[in-house]
Each structure stands twice: as C-alpha cells, then as structure tokens.
Simulated scan of single mutants.
Amino acid sequence: MPSAAPTLGALLRSVRSREGWTLKEMSERSGIPVSTLSKVEHDRLTLTYDKLYQLSQRLGMRMSDLFAESNDEAPPPVTARRSLGDIANAVRVETPNYDYYYLCTELRRKRMIPVITKIRAKTEEEFGDLVHHAGEEFVYVLSGKIVVTTEFYDPVTLDTGQSIYIDSSMGHAYLAADGCAEAEVLGIMSSADDELLQSLMAMHEEQSAEAVVRDRRSSVREVARPHAAERPKPARLVRSSG
C-alpha cells in the first residue's frame, strides 16, 4: 500500500533537519515568525501562496520542492554476506567440452555467478548448438587462447589477458583456438533471474546429453567404415617382361 504524501510541515522539518537549522535560524532566514513555522511543522497551520513564495525565495528553493515527495530512498540493508572461493571447494561440472568450477555456491540468490571454465572444444560441431540464457556475462582469458562465436557477430579470438562482455540471451559458444589444447577463463554471469544457477546447471545437463548422442553417432560411423586392412587395395600397373 503506497505511503501517504508528506505534508508541508513534514517537508519543512526535513529541510530544516538536512540543513541543521533551529526553528529560530529558519525564521531568520525566511522572515516567517518562529510561532508560525512551528504551527506549520506540526500541521496546525498552512501557508498562503505569498508566504510559500517568500519561503522558497529566502531559502533558495523552488516552489515545486515544497510540494515534492522526498526521493531519498532508504539505504539498502547491509547483509554482510561474504564468501571465499577456490578451485578445491568449487562445485565442479564436467562435460566433454568443458570443466566448470562454480565458486561461492553457498551464497543463495546471487546476482552474479562466478565460474572458472576449462575449454577443450575446438569446433562448433564438437560444441553443439549455441547456448542462450538470461542476463549478461563477462569472460576474461586466464590462460591459452579462445574463439568466441556469437549469434550476431563474426567470431573473435581472445588471447590471455583479453576479455569480452556479451548479452547472454544471444547465442554464444567458447572454443579453444587452433594450437591451444585447453584454455582457462574466468566468467561472471549476471541476471535479475534468481534461478540463474539452476538454469545453467540444466543447460550443462543438456550439453552432456547432446555430446553423448554425437559420440554414439560418431562411433556408429566409425564401425560402419571399413578398416584399412579390409579396404580394397588400389590397382597397380604391372609391366610385362616379355
């Protein structure tokens, strides 16, 4: 339920408190008697337009300020939340293409999800479909070199010490660049969605399931392909000696 608009008296008290004035000091500055100001502050009296104009002019305020609701919002509570994170105590998620190390997981309802990721996938075929999820993310390359593929931009290569910030709802994938067996990055994912971490975990499960299907298809193709020893040898030209 919305709170009632502050009265003129409440606004005058707020101004006086902010400036550190006594009623007498405000009276001297505004030219309005102390008794009148006291009655106004206690909502027992109001001021005519002429007196309001005089008050605003003498105090260096706009007339509108005397009727405006205070826009001072209560400061957010200090929650004193803190969490120390390291690889040894991270929640580890392994997939064929990545190893994820989720940090500071004991804190619930985080607006930022910090994660160390080891990237091995080298091609979009290995990676599978581009991923999408709520929010935005920042990725900083700790070691190695990666290729960032996104839905609306050309691929970009990032070396150690370089970073990228993207809209996570845009399809994206991180690949190890040519010549790099494994890259390690620090990612910070942020969203107003309180269930972001659960969404990411579900995404990992889908990636793992898709990777298993791709591996099985690859194995079937390999079995169906004749082994080198079974393949017909190419014809050889043999010259007659006669």
Rank of each mutant, 00 (worst) to 15 (best):
P2V: 12
L8N: 00
G20W: 02
S27Y: 06
I32W: 06
R44D: 14
L45A: 15
Y49Q: 07
K51I: 15
Y53M: 06
Y53L: 10
Q54F: 02
M61S: 03
M63T: 07
L66A: 00
A68Y: 01
E69Q: 11
N71T: 13
N71Q: 14
E73Q: 10
E73V: 13
A74C: 05
P75C: 05
P76R: 06
L84P: 03
D86I: 06
A88I: 09
Y98K: 12
L103W: 04
L103I: 09
T105S: 13
K110N: 10
R111K: 13
V115S: 00
K118H: 10
E125M: 05
E126K: 03
F127V: 04
G128Y: 02
V131E: 10
H132T: 15
S143P: 02
G144P: 04
I146G: 00
V147Q: 09
D154L: 08
S163F: 08
Y165M: 13
I166G: 00
S168W: 01
A173M: 09
Y174R: 07
L175R: 08
C180T: 15
A192W: 04
D194K: 06
D215S: 11
S218I: 02
S219A: 14
S219F: 03
V220T: 07
A224E: 12
A224Y: 04
P226K: 11
A228H: 06
A229H: 06
A229S: 12
P232D: 03
P232H: 00
K233L: 13
L237H: 09
R239Q: 13
